[in-house]
Design a protein around this nucleic acid. Structure first.
Length: 231
DNA sequence: TTTCATGTTCAGCA
DNA sequence: GTGCTGAACATGAA
């Protein structure tokens, strides 16, 4: 293993990391929320957090720009490419312990409708902030939260307490639908249905449903797009 | 040249 | 304890 920038392994000891990885194999992969876990043949798991701009990249030729760490195999390498270096690599004894230590909630695609409703009935603050809170449900980020709320015609600024059980059930369905579709599309926004708000972020955006100009506002510390006419 | 950004975490404050 | 704000991280795109 070659570490190009120590920032991406901060919180981990460089030697421990190298020792845990080198000479071994990745036996299996798991995901929880936005985290990836690779089981190491020497025991334990490699944890992988992508931040906003991180991604894995296989290469058997020239090294990609912004490669922050590299797992070198006999033929080719697996690179951790991350321009902004907001991602992290680390070690954990198991995904469960890692999830527990981070206080992460159930994965967005695994949480049942009942659990979801219960978790949000006691939420405070704007619904969008609650949806992005990884302690409640793990896996929903800024863009996807906007999409889910849009599909349910819910105002991102609305207090979580103001939502009915029916609203929350809609949100649970939308969460599953949006994430599934996005995974199918390989997270390529252009391959999503034209009715998706996700594709409309940016300059002078119009609502894909009614054509009105989309509004932007900061909610939960992040830029939110929504259509005031569709609420 | 300036501003903003797909995420997380933490300090400081109300 | 809860929630909000701003900062930090380092870079590219608009």
């Amino acid at each position: 293993m070659e570490v190009r920038n120590d920032v991406v392994i901060r919180g981990t000891d460089r030697c421990d990391l190298a020792e845990a990885v080198e000479g071994g194999e990745f036996l299996s992969v798991r995901r929880h929320g936005k985290r990836l876990f690779l089981r190491l043949s020497g025991g334990g798991w490699l944890t992988w957090h992508f931040g906003m701009t991180g991604r894995p990249a296989w290469t058997d030729g020239a090294e990609e720009r912004f490669t922050r760490a590299l797992f070198v195999f006999p033929r080719g390498s697996l690179a951790f490419v991350d321009p902004r270096m907001l991602g992290r690599l680390g070690l954990a004894s198991s995904p469960e312990r890692y999830i527990e230590s981070k206080g992460m909630g159930p994965d967005a695609l695994e949480i049942s409708r009942g659990e979801f409703v219960d978790a949000f009935l006691e939420a405070r603050g704007p619904i969008k902030a609650a949806l992005m809170d990884q302690r409640r449900v793990a896996g929903v980020g800024n863009l996807y939260a906007d999409e889910m709320l849009f599909q349910c015609r819910l105002d991102p600024r609305a207090g979580a307490r103001s939502l009915s059980e029916r609203d929350l059930e809609c949100l649970h369905r939308a969460m599953r639908r949006v994430l599934r579709r996005s995974i199918e599309a390989g997270a390529d926004l252009d391959r999503l249905p034209p009715t998706y708000l996700l594709r409309c972020r940016g300059r002078g955006a119009a609502c894909p449903r009614c054509g009105s100009a989309l509004r932007t506002e900061t909610v939960g510390g992040r830029t939110s797009y929504f259509c005031a006419d569709c609420l």
